[in-house]
């Protein structure tokens, strides 16, 4: 690990000027579950690390007239167990899908959204876009069993690793980004971007900004929501495909639907065709399966990940069926 300067600000006013204007110079430390291994492996080599755990304003979950404010430092475990989250099963279930208590207790909401891809070429030092010396991507001809099946026209083939993003996007959440010139709000659906060069990042956050809150809009509690993850293991394991759904039901039929896939594309992947297929329909095995089929219509599997198309299809179907089931009292989350 390269030697670095360590800053421990006590307030946002102290923290923001400590951030650099260029990516790579400064890294933000919250739970540390991702950053430390990136630094140990020299994938990132910041000159300064800014620990934001001292920023009290980034903690806690609170209700406001605009909706639920979730602080960036709220842990996955708090999210999974807190009372207000029982109204948003998709989110609590997504947090529960991180089946390591250690990671849930250290990992934060902000960290989950801003963590770097798990692509093994990136982690082995071949850059975000996994290119060899000639600039060619290693992924299409390489070991791509865990890579993208959607949004993979290149040059990015990694999958977005966030556990929470699909559920948050399905619920219509937005992110609050704070910088020295004030704050801005970005719909989470627009927060993630597919980088076109190694100099770009996987989201619209600027190097001198901090993601401080996630806001679930007022009224989202009315939605029937669920997250379904397909994982190889029950113990801590990255999902192979995830689907988060949020349905507005009227008289047993779908008035509107949001369906977002995770771990299948460089960004959380919306499925508008699947959403449309459900309009005015009840949720049953047939309509859910049809939506699953529509969600993967545009999939273009790589040499080693055709299986993920089927998993994404099934994830959508099972998430829909779960969302349509009557909500249990005191939901514990889990899939």
């Amino acid at each position: 690990m390269q030697a670095f300067e360590y800053a421990h600000p006590r307030s946002m006013t102290e923290a923001l000027p400590l951030l650099g204007s260029r990516w790579g110079e400064t890294e933000i430390l919250a739970g540390g579950t991702d950053l430390l291994s990136l630094m140990k492996n020299y994938v990132v080599t910041p000159k300064r690390v800014v620990n934001i755990k001292g920023l009290r304003e980034l903690r806690g979950i609170r209700g406001t007239p605009e909706g639920i404010y979730i602080g960036a430092l709220v842990t996955l475990e708090e999210l999974r167990t807190s009372q207000p989250m029982h109204e948003y099963p998709a989110l609590a279930q997504a947090a529960a899908g991180v089946t390591s208590p250690q990671i849930r207790n250290m990992g934060t909401v902000g960290g989950d959204l801003c963590q770097r891809p798990r692509c093994w070429y990136f982690r082995s030092g071949f850059g975000l876009l996994a290119r060899d010396e000639s600039g060619r991507s290693l992924v299409p001809q390489g070991e791509n069993r865990y890579h993208a099946i959607l949004g993979n026209d290149g040059p990015a083939y990694f999958v977005n690793p966030s556990s929470l993003a699909p559920a948050l996007i399905a619920l219509g959440a937005k992110a609050r980004l704070d910088g020295q010139n004030g704050e801005r709000y970005v719909a989470l659906a627009e927060f993630f971007v597919i980088p076109k060069s190694d100099a770009e990042r996987e989201n619209v956050l600027q190097p001198n900004e901090i993601l401080t809150h996630v806001i679930i809009p007022e009224g989202a509690w009315e939605l029937s929501s669920a997250t379904y993850e397909v994982r190889q293991k029950e113990a801590l394991d990255w999902p192979l495909a995830t689907a988060a759904v949020a349905l507005k039901m009227q008289a047993g039929k779908v008035a509107s639907a949001r369906i977002v896939l995770g771990h299948v594309a460089p960004i959380p992947w919306p499925a508008p065709e699947a959403e449309k297929s459900l309009a005015g329909q009840p949720i049953n095995e047939a309509t859910a399966a049809r939506a699953g089929e529509a969600a993967v219509q545009g999939a273009k599997p790589l040499s080693g990940n055709r299986y993920k198309v089927q998993l994404a299809r099934v994830a959508v179907k099972r998430a829909l069926l779960a969302a349509a089931r009557p909500r249990s009292i005191g939901a514990k989350g889990g899939v």
Binding site: A235, L236, D237, W238
Partner: peptide, 12 residues
């Protein structure tokens, strides 16, 4: 690494 060199956990 221990994330993609997969070993069973107790639940598995």
């Amino acid at each position: 690494d221990m994330e993609f060199y997969k070993l069973a956990g107790i639940a598995d």
